[in-house]
Amino acid sequence: MDLLKIGTRSFESRLIIGTGKYGSFEETGHAIQESGAEIVTVAIRRTNLGQNASEANLLDFIDLDHTTLLPNTAGCYTSDEAIRTLRLARELLDGHDLVKLEVLGDPQTLFPNVSETLVAAEQLVKDGFQVMVYTSDDPIVAKQLEDLGCVAIMPLASLIGSGMGILNPWNLSIIIENLKVPVIVDAGVGTASDAVIAMELGCDAVLMNTAIAAAQDPIMMARAMKNAVQAGRDAFRAGRMPKNLYHASPSSPTSGMMPPSSKK
């Protein structure tokens, strides 16, 4: 069995999806189901009070027996905010320790602030969290985060929510080559082919949200992404044929050809 091992946990699916931007909680639930994802990210926010206190909660629409929640620190711009958010998440989810750390540097690009990310990662690992960390595609930073004890390194492929695809496959390849822990493309995937490329490069998994939630038909796109991640993984493991830049190679036998017909 080709399992994805993250920290102390193992998963069959290599697609991780976010739960934001869907039209309804029902749609979120259907998309999770159709994607086959076993890990889904959630954000931590102030709870509704007053008249809205009885509103439905996202967690009521997720099969919590078969799904691992991955609380994130979306919207945090300092290590302190991120650490505080994940400590609350651990309390909220009864001691759950697998988390997604992201410390943002700029609201325009949502690029990570890597120095704050490193500070937060070190503290969270000390606190006993299993940290999956969103970062830039800088191979040095990726290695530093691994050395701090993060259980998965999650470089962006392009900007969060941009759908621009894999903009720097070379950097991703260097990161994949250098690290022992899973490398997961987080952010930038726009359509199925992007997910295939990420997996063919040797990524261990792909994390996406907007590519599914903002599709015209999110449920169908969830299925497409499931198949894409599987296809890319299979292609990676199968090992692609070498590229021949200048010479074609016929697929059919070159012997046994009939001679040219002689017209009279």
Partner: peptide, 10 residues
């Protein structure tokens, strides 16, 4: 006092 819960997010 801050009271939080899990919401949709990526």
């Amino acid at each position: 006092i801050e009271i939080v819960t899990a919401v949709g997010g990526g």
